[in-house]
Design a protein around this nucleic acid. Structure first.
Lengths: 157, 157
DNA sequence: CAATCTGATGCAATTTCATTTCGCTTTCAT
DNA sequence: ATGAAAGCGAAATGAAATTGCATCAGATTG
């Protein structure tokens, strides 16, 4: 799908705040609300906008700790990796999981209430997997930036 | 702010999809649309819901690569750390930045179009900082999970 | 124990917003 | 030129959010 300057401006706006009315969006980018509606609908259908969600403050739900874990696997057999991926996907505390090339194999970003919850999770996710050679835990002292906005400025793809 | 079962159910729902109408939400949790409206407004005001945003697919904007960088700093002087934090915050490609205890000092999750863009960013963010002892780059081969939903089930805080 | 205060509810009226329709303009390839 | 395709704005329609109001349950107090 081809995106013009209007689309990009809309994306930039709704990435910051999806509650702005289409009228206001139109005023901001110089378009009628009908045009805004059509463009947003199209971008939703084409998957440019994956979804629109409420971002909840973890602290208010008791999730005070962000922990980053680097996991090294024993075997790279595909079925074993898939099983691990599935267990990470299924775990609500796992906010993000990347399968990476480099020193380790998986990087996880997790949200936990306290260290006990984390150690409990390591048991479930790592020890019981039988395919984890080792893991390194990094505890976040400060979540400097936790953003969701994809850069939109500069050139198109 | 105290959250009851209704609030939690609402949070769970709007974390998945913030476009559901308040009527439908009400039907789902057994509440009138007015009550849903009031509860959502309250949670917005109290910061339980930080914001509601559209999640954009990076690939559609040409951001094909996710890179994780572990940065080790030279000095932990507060003013120097703050300067670094600010430069990370200001960089749109930096999706997340954590200041961590452990082997390294910062963990960054970045979104870039290609490796060139990344090496360019390392120049701006790391080499020009004069406070980076070294950094390790992990390239994501598979973004297994990139979620935003804070766990809501189980016990309250 | 009764009075009262608080916070939250549902209903219904109102207002705001999203969505569709329609006629018009532009672009581009015939 | 000409017709098809794409996109626009204004206005009509339909849906949703918001608010006023009467009410109710639970806690607090005299």
């Amino acid at each position: 799908m081809r995106l013009d300057q209007f689309d990009l401006a809309l994306l930039e706006a709704v990435q910051q705040d999806a509650t702005i009315s289409q009228q206001d969006l139109g005023a901001r980018v110089n378009l009628s609300s009908a045009a805004v509606n059509r463009r947003l609908k199209k971008m939703n259908m084409h998957g440019v906008i994956r979804k629109t969600v409420a971002l909840v403050d973890p602290a208010h739900l008791g999730y005070a700790l962000t922990v980053i874990t680097e996991v090294e696997v024993e075997s790279e057999r595909l079925d074993l990796l898939d099983a691990m991926k599935r267990s990470f996907l299924a775990c609500p505390q796992v906010q993000q999981c990347y399968y990476v090339a480099g020193a380790c194999d998986f990087v996880l970003v997790m949200l936990v209430r306290n260290m006990e919850e984390y150690t409990q999770l390591t048991r479930e996710l790592f020890f019981e997997s039988n395919n984890v050679k080792g893991f390194k835990t990094l505890v976040s002292m400060s979540n400097v930036k936790v953003g969701t906005a994809v850069p939109v400025g500069s050139e198109g793809h």
